[in-house]
Structure formats: structure tokens, C-alpha cells
Amino acid sequence: MNFRNILAIAASAAVACAEDIYLIAKSNNTEISNKGVGFIHEGAGINYGFLGAEGQGATLSYNETEKQIILDTGVLQFFRVSGGYVAMSVVGPDSEITFDSNDYLLVNGSSEHFFGCKNTNDPYQYSVQSYEVMYYPENAPSGCLPLTLQKQAAPSSSSSSSSPSPSSSDAQSSSSAPTTTPDTTSSTLSTSATSSGHHEVSSASTFTGAAAPQYAPVGSFFALAGLAAALV
């Protein structure tokens, strides 16, 4: 069996043994609580997390053995929290992802440090009008709203990376969210971003999930493309 076949089998096995899920925000702030998380393409091999429709989110796969959340867009992307941004990226995982007994997402054992923020200076400026999901272990910017992320089971009929249309019973959690408090050592977010040429990520619409990369790959994505070419 050649190396290309081994890689293909390994990738298929990682997705096949995973649980289909989506994520919703839980917060003391009703403006963002129960909003689903969608991952929107904003760069080569990377999709940033935003809050959208209530009780709806992009369909993801959770591999309990590997302790990773995966998005399959033809190339596997992994849940990451580096640099403050919550994203799915081809770069690979940067943390151990698990869930507690109430299905709250834990990054290296903690459900804390997640926020909904605007004006994050994301590449396409969607955060000017929509809340982006961010991760700040310390010094969260002022105006960010603390939240936790809770796992919901994706509808069994959905097997794609696009957002499902969950039943009303999935929109609400039967358990209470952990208490979240703003970081008191916060700094101010950049407000230099403008909304010119961009559309609001409406909370009333369904996320379409991850789009195929639209731009020339950079960094590690080049390495991935080079590996694929070498195996042909």
C-alpha cells in the first residue's frame, strides 16, 4: 500500500469515527445566548467563527479519541484558538478539545475564555456588524461578551459542512450555563474597521458553512498542496 493510500485511509477514518455536532453560545447576555456558531471563510485554508442564527450552526465532527473538532471541506480543518481567534484551519490543532458532563466545550480542560466580540479587525470585516467568537485567556478587550460553547447533536440527515436546521428542542439547553464574568483587565478593540463592501452576517440567516478556499494558499497550506502534488 503506497503512502498516498495510507493518508487517504487515515483521513477517512478520522471523520468516519467522529460524532456530528454543532456549537451554540451560552451566555448571561441574551443578545448572544443560544446563537449558533458558523465558520466563515476569510483566508486560505481558514474559517473564522461567528454567531448567527439561534440554535443553528455549521455541522462539525468531533473525534473523541483524538480530542479534536474537525471540519471537512475536502481538506480537513481543525478547531484552533491561537492568536485570539476561534477558527477552523488546515494548520492543524493547537489544543486538546473535550466536553464536560453538560456538553460544554473545554480547551485543555477549561470552558472559560470564550467571548463574542465586534470590531476584531478580521480580514473581511464581518465583525463590524456581527459577533465573532474569540478566545482570550487574559486581557479580553472591553465590550466583549463572555460566553461558553455547548455541543449539540447535528441532525442525523446532515452529513455536509453546511449548517443544519435543528429542531426546536436543540435550540435550548436543558442545563444552565456556567457563570461567566468579563475580564476586568480589558483593553479596547480596534474600531478602525469599516463595513464598506461587506454584508452583515445576519443572525436570522443560516450559515452555509465553510467554502472552498478562494485564494492562493500560503504558509502551511503550500506545504499541504506540495505534499498532495508529490503523491500524485
Rank of each mutant, 00 (worst) to 15 (best):
Y135M: 04
S161R: 13
A216I: 10
P123R: 08
S175G: 03
A171Y: 05
Y215F: 13
A177T: 05
S160R: 04
T208Y: 10
L149C: 07
S165E: 12
Q152A: 07
C117K: 06
T188A: 14
T181F: 08
K118R: 15
F115N: 10
T181R: 13
F221D: 11
D183P: 01
G109Q: 06
A171T: 13
P217E: 06
N108P: 02
T120D: 02
N121A: 15
F207S: 15
Q172E: 11
L189R: 14
M134S: 11
D170C: 14
S161D: 09
H199W: 07
S111F: 12
P141Y: 05
D170Q: 15
H113M: 02
S142R: 14
S110G: 02
S176R: 11
S165V: 13
P217K: 07
S205I: 03
V107D: 02
L189V: 09
M134C: 13
D122Y: 01
Y135F: 15
T208K: 11
S203G: 15
V218H: 01
G197K: 02
S110C: 03
S169I: 04
P123I: 03
S187M: 03
S205N: 11
S165F: 10
E200Y: 00
A193D: 12
S174Y: 01
E200D: 09
T188N: 13
L145N: 05
S203A: 12
S111G: 07
D122R: 00
G219Y: 01
N139W: 01
S175Q: 10
S167D: 14
G209E: 06
S163Q: 05
T148A: 13
S158L: 10
H198C: 06
G209K: 09
T194G: 12
D122P: 00
A216H: 08
D103T: 03
S130V: 03
P141Q: 05
S111C: 09
H198V: 13
M134N: 07
D103I: 00
E112V: 05
T148L: 08
D170R: 08
K118N: 08
P146L: 07
P217M: 06
S163P: 00
A140C: 12
A204C: 05
Y126G: 03
E112M: 04
S159D: 08
P137T: 10
A212P: 00
S159M: 06
Q172K: 15
N139G: 04
T206P: 00
L189E: 11
C144Y: 02
N121F: 01
S158W: 10
S161C: 10
N139I: 02
L106M: 14
P155M: 09
T191K: 14
T181E: 11
A204D: 14
S168C: 04
S169N: 08
A177M: 08
D170M: 10
T185V: 03
